[in-house]
Amino acid sequence: MAAPTPSMLPQLLDKHQAQLMKDWLAGQRAAGVVVDVESDERVRRFIAALRQGASSNADDVKNADWAAARDVLEQISRERALKGSTPVETVMFVFSLKDPLFALLRRECGSDADRLAREIANAMHLLDQLGLYTVEVFQKSREEVIGRQQEELLELSTPVVQLWDGVIAVPLIGTLDSARTQVVMESLLEEIVRTGAEIAIIDITGVPTVDTLVAQHLLKTVSAARLMGADCIISGIRPQIAQTIVHLGVELDVISKATMADAFAVALRRTGRMVVSRAGNGKGASKAENGDKAAGKTGAGQSGE
């Protein structure tokens, strides 16, 4: 756009600012852009910024002369992204300026078709770039929101609970990827140090699928806990997952139990404790020493309380 005659955009914006603002706001309303009390101020700031950018003759909006215009757009985009507007609604803020601006240009140029074409092409080029920039910022803001939520989810989803003196458990919920494994591992090991636990139960009831990668991650966690001097028990293996593990040929080289209750019974036995029924009706009394089946039955009843 290296026009020999300088663009008429700056003078035009100066001269018809009030009219343009009114038309633009009306256009925004028609296009479904949210118009609120701050719109007036924003529109004024953007027109001023546009004027500043246009008068610099730089036709790339990444240029420093357009910093003010970019600021306004960034602010709007971010706000809209957080409020949950659609990208179209957001970008229409810029594009709705086209109609009033082009009308203004046509009136100003009169019958000079050549000049009109040049001015419109120029203005369109600028507004398109600004529009694209708005979308870009919008997208980025949304991604920031998603990233933050993921982080929060990561922290929320890996609690380490103490079941008994020396026995801790990690109920895993959701898919186990490497980022989560890292968090699980860290919090588990920290907790082992803090509580001096000898046995850690990793419960995978809430893990939807176990493939080779997930199994590898599990084994890593188990190895790390072992290095700290704690034994791991993996519990909550559903029938389907047991089948998958065997079909994949994964070797889970650790103690595994079907339910958390079974694992807890093992943990108690290992730490030299047992659960005795108070009534002494004989059924639950010797459970911690009995075979796994008996322990499973009474253990399940216990955890259901």
């Binding site: 860290e186 090991l189 790390a224 806990a225 290095l227 700290m228």
Partner: peptide, 8 residues
């Protein structure tokens, strides 16, 4: 803990 993770 950090050492254990590194070794693994």
């Amino acid at each position: 803990p950090a050492v254990a993770i590194t070794l693994v």
